[in-house]
Design a protein around this nucleic acid. Structure first.
Lengths: 185, 185
DNA sequence: GTCTATACGAAGATAGAC
DNA sequence: GTCTATCTTCGTATAGAC
């Protein structure tokens, strides 16, 4: 298919970013991982690596946001599913792959990475805040609770990864569940 | 002084890691930032870049841990001071410099970075858990609450940085203060 | 302990043939 | 749309003079 190579490069880039970070991922790495033909790189990404990074993080952000929000879910479910998703991801990849948005955000100097990551975080925060207010939580508390959950889960993903244990993420998930339950009661 | 160059290189490395991440920081960058003489690199760090990274993160870990724990503080104070420290750091550096342990942990493939970061996180978690149990919180809740606080603050640092606003970190700090207050009451 | 010079490879990017 | 070849720059590392 026409876009097969492009898609393969983007998804390989995302995987490598999650694994080693943006700065440690080279163009050649993406080529090798995706099996994409060497000569077609600048055909698909005339803007070079910056374009590849930017599009990959944008794509990852859309994916994470879509996984985060399900219109039928309440706030507690959104948070719990988000945490569980990354617990599964860490187990699936033997603790190699973290959150792509985190990887991008830490490369603060690269605007092509940090910019799309900021957008995605903002989108997730907005969705969770909305869900909280619809459940009766007033601003500014709704925004605070949304920030707490996103911060805690993102941080816990990193801790779980470095410890090679799901315990930090599970502990965080349980504490958040308790907080959300008491607020929404 | 004999170790002046060495120290300068290490502290410059830490600053650059916080700013752009480990993968995007080159040896030459560290040299330029520290003003260290080009020819003495392998005199001070015969193990090359791996040694520099490893020692820099170890040093940063000790610094963060020392800042985190003060023997006279209770758990709520430890958490609050940790959050406030990074709020000040973000303001001081115009949101350029995040947590060095985060930067190291995200470079999961580099054991010389991820290893020392994991040690530092573990040390901080142990100190906070101890402080909680001494305040009467039983295990395993003490461990969970410690994990929640560290995860949330570390995650919030990243969010605040990408948004160029202290709001996420402040919101997280306030929510954590509330949780700790209710548990310790 | 610091300097210059340089080797060596990796990485990003481009050109031109097919 | 893909291939090979190549150019340039950068990054790590080493050698040898001072």
């Amino acid at each position: 298919m026409a876009t097969g190579t492009r898609e393969a490069m983007l998804s390989s880039a995302i995987r490598l970013f999650r694994e080693r970070g943006v700065g440690d991922t080279s163009f050649a790495d993406v080529l090798a991982a995706s099996g994409a033909p060497r000569g077609s790189v600048y055909h698909h990404f005339p803007g070079g690596k910056k374009q590849l990074v930017s599009e990959a993080i944008r794509s990852a952000g859309g994916y994470v946001a879509a996984n985060f929000e399900r219109s039928t879910d309440g706030p507690a479910e959104m948070v719990d599913r988000f945490a569980r998703f990354y617990i599964r991801e860490l187990e699936r990849t033997d603790y190699r792959e973290g959150c792509p948005l985190m990887a991008a955000a830490v490369a603060g100097a690269k605007e092509e990475a940090a910019g799309p990551a900021a957008n995605a975080f903002s989108q997730i925060h907005g969705a969770l805040t909305d869900s909280l207010t619809k459940s009766g939580v007033k601003e500014p508390r709704a925004s605070s609770l949304a920030t707490l959950a996103i911060s805690a889960i993102e941080g816990a993903i990193v801790l779980s990864r470095t410890e090679k244990s799901t315990e930090p993420l599970n502990q965080t998930r349980e504490e958040l569940a308790q907080i959300y339950a008491s607020v929404l009661a």
